[in-house]
Amino acid sequence: MLGFLNLHKPTGMTSHDCVGKVRRICGLKRVGHGGTLDPLATGVLPIALGPATRLLPYLPEQKAYQATIRFGLTTTTDDLAGDILSEQSANHLAQEVVEKALPQFLGSIEQRPPAYSAIQVQGQRLYDLARQGKNVTAPLRRVEVFDIQILDWQGGEKSELEVAIACGPGTYIRSIARDLGEVLGTGATLAQLTRTLSCGFALADSLTFETLAEQVQAGTFSPLEPSFSLQQPILHLPPAEAQRFCWGQKLPQDCADGMMQVHDTSNRFLGMGEIIDGLLKPKVVLPAQ
């Protein structure tokens, strides 16, 4: 089996748990995922099946989320999974005030990842250090936030803001929630998160574990084609050159430099190649299907 699965991750499972469950349902050993989701988060978790795991680095990087931010509350994890650090009333907050604060989180910004995150510091994951009681400040990282749209506002003691966020890789929505609360002086934490887009896969097209299991049992499950979400230009090779590409040989090509999807003349996807100075170098060669 070779291809991708657009999985609708349920709450309460780690991304690693999801990979293990897909292995059991599909009867595969080689399974990987793109873009980790926190256990409390739901939504799109791209899953690569078989040799398609080698294509994960070439999928689109942009992501989109639907998030609920709760004001008047801060936690150790910057979401509801952590211990409460502080509580106060956010009854005075108005949507207009919150809306005026959002533009500072747009564009190329420096962001401090949550203390409980998979970022490595001195060879250890931050969440491991945090669980050991070590107070380590996560290094700032530059991330890209393309758009933030307000979807709903509910005022009250613990006012809540629902937003849609489009961003680049490495962006922590938990950090946006935490930092927005700091700017507004009430504190805030992430109350809910659904990923609606990742690696070119959309939530509307995702499969639950239940649907996946039913399709596998019925013999109707068909992985998405390996090139389904790839955005690189397509290069078609005639039979002789296609064979040489599959052997891992470099090929002269009169094309602009860059990463390419490589297909044969029957449009069979062969893998990924990179053209440098007129020479096509195989980067990923897939087994014949």
Rank of each mutant, 00 (worst) to 15 (best):
R30M: 15
D83G: 09
L73F: 03
G12N: 08
Q88Y: 06
T74I: 08
G35V: 03
Q88R: 14
Q88A: 14
H92T: 09
R131T: 06
P60D: 01
D17A: 07
Q111L: 12
E61M: 14
A101P: 07
T14W: 12
T77P: 03
E99C: 07
N91A: 14
K63V: 09
D78P: 06
E96Q: 11
V44P: 15
S108Y: 15
G133Q: 01
G32T: 14
T77I: 09
Q66N: 04
Q122E: 15
D38H: 10
Q111K: 10
L93S: 00
Q120T: 13
L59E: 05
K134P: 02
C26Q: 11
T36W: 12
R131V: 04
A52Y: 09
I84V: 15
A64K: 02
A41R: 05
A48Y: 08
R112C: 12
Q88M: 15
I25T: 02
V98R: 05
Q88E: 13
F71V: 02
V136P: 06
E96I: 12
L40S: 08
S89Q: 10
Y116A: 05
A48I: 09
R142H: 12
A138H: 06
T53S: 07
G107I: 13
R141Y: 15
V98I: 12
R23A: 00
G27A: 04
H16S: 13
V22R: 01
V44T: 06
F71P: 05
Y116T: 06
T11D: 12
R141K: 14
A101N: 03
E144S: 11
A64W: 09
V136K: 05
R131F: 02
P60L: 07
Y58M: 13
Q111E: 09
A81T: 13
K63H: 04
L126Q: 00
E61D: 13
R142A: 11
G72M: 04
R141P: 13
G123T: 07
R142L: 08
V143E: 06
E110T: 14
Q66E: 14
R125I: 07
L40R: 11
Q111N: 03
G35R: 06
D79G: 00
D83W: 02
G133L: 11
S117R: 13
G27Y: 05
K100I: 10
T42I: 07
G107W: 10
H92A: 13
M13A: 10
I84Y: 01
V22Q: 06
T77Y: 08
Y58I: 12
V98G: 03
P113I: 08
D79M: 12
G12Y: 09
G35W: 12
L140C: 05
E110G: 04
V97N: 14
I109G: 03
K134F: 14
A81W: 15
G20M: 11
P103S: 05
A64Q: 10
Q66S: 09
G43S: 01
I25Q: 02
F105N: 00
I84R: 04
L80G: 05
A41Q: 01
R131N: 08
G12R: 12
A101M: 00
V136A: 10
L49N: 05
S89W: 08
I25C: 02
T36C: 10
L73G: 01
A118E: 13
L49A: 00
F105A: 07
L59R: 10
A138P: 07
I47D: 01
R70W: 08
G32E: 07
Q88S: 08
V136G: 06
K29C: 09
R112D: 11
K21F: 14
K63S: 00
A94T: 15
Q95C: 13
